[in-house]
């Protein structure tokens, strides 16, 4: 299991998804975004990426599939096997080096089980706060691929929210490292500082409070800038 073969597998997935017209409809989230920020976003080329076996795709809401595509069949051809969780039919897709999941923003009180995306033959797991990521997509060009990822500033702020909600220490550490890593780079650019402030300002007060309480301890420059410019 090497980083190189893992990257090759990820690129193969993205390439197959792009050919099938699926990649254009989904947003890549999670740690693999850092890879694309490094290569596709100016100023983030020095970003450090910690190793991860998770590759997550966000299904935006409302969702417009555009066409019918059998995603599990594509993943099967790439050697992925479905791993079912519980009786709900929710599947993640496993590979020796990766686990691929489909996630969807949880809105309101949420539904009782996974959300079926009929045209793509998949079920997506509902998770809170993902609409924040879905609302700020950017496109990154990389080796002939056009990958939609959340705007880096939003990715970092979202990680700070998630950090405060996580129970597992290893996940918390990873979230915090990713958030602080990006913020450190973004804060070198006054335009990005201003952008972060404006995103933060538009957030629901509860969310903003969560972010600022985490950053006060782990990235106080954010609180300082926000207080001075709000």
């Amino acid at each position: 299991m090497t980083e190189e073969t893992q990257s090759e597998t990820v690129l193969e997935i993205l390439s197959r998804f792009q050919k099938a017209g699926v990649l254009q409809r989904l947003i890549l989230i999670g740690s693999w975004c850092l890879h694309f920020y490094r290569y596709g976003v100016r100023g983030l080329d020095g970003l450090r990426m910690s190793r991860t076996t998770d590759i997550d795709f966000l299904v935006p809401r409302p969702f417009h599939p555009g066409r019918k595509v059998d995603i599990p069949a594509i993943l099967q051809e790439l050697g992925f096997a479905p791993t079912f969780h519980g009786q709900s039919g929710l599947a993640v897709y496993d590979h020796p080096e990766l686990r691929l999941e489909f996630l969807i923003p949880e809105l309101g009180k949420g539904s009782s089980g996974p959300v079926t995306i009929r045209d793509f033959h998949i079920k997506a797991q509902e998770i809170r706060y993902l609409n924040f990521l879905a609302a700020h997509p950017v496109k990154v060009e990389y080796q002939g691929l056009t990958v939609t990822v959340p705007e880096p500033a939003v990715f970092a702020l979202h990680k700070l929210i998630v950090y405060s909600k996580r129970k597992k220490p290893e996940k918390r550490e990873k979230d915090l490292a990713a958030a602080v890593g990006i913020l450190e780079f973004l804060f070198k650019d006054p335009k990005e500082q201003e952008r972060i402030k404006s995103v933060l300002k538009k957030l629901p007060p509860k969310w903003r409070k969560i972010i600022l309480s985490v950053s006060a301890k782990h990235f106080p420059a954010l609180n300082k800038y926000y207080e001075a410019h709000k």
């Binding site: 096997a81 496993d94 290893e170």
Partner: peptide, 26 residues
């Protein structure tokens, strides 16, 4: 160190599940 062990434990669990999935499909 505790965090690293946690990550490894999680990967162990994932691989065990993946093993079960491959065996089932095979």
């Amino acid at each position: 160190m505790k965090v690293l062990k946690g990550i490894l434990k999680e990967e162990e669990q994932r691989l065990k599940e993946a093993q079960g999935s491959y065996e089932r499909e095979i």
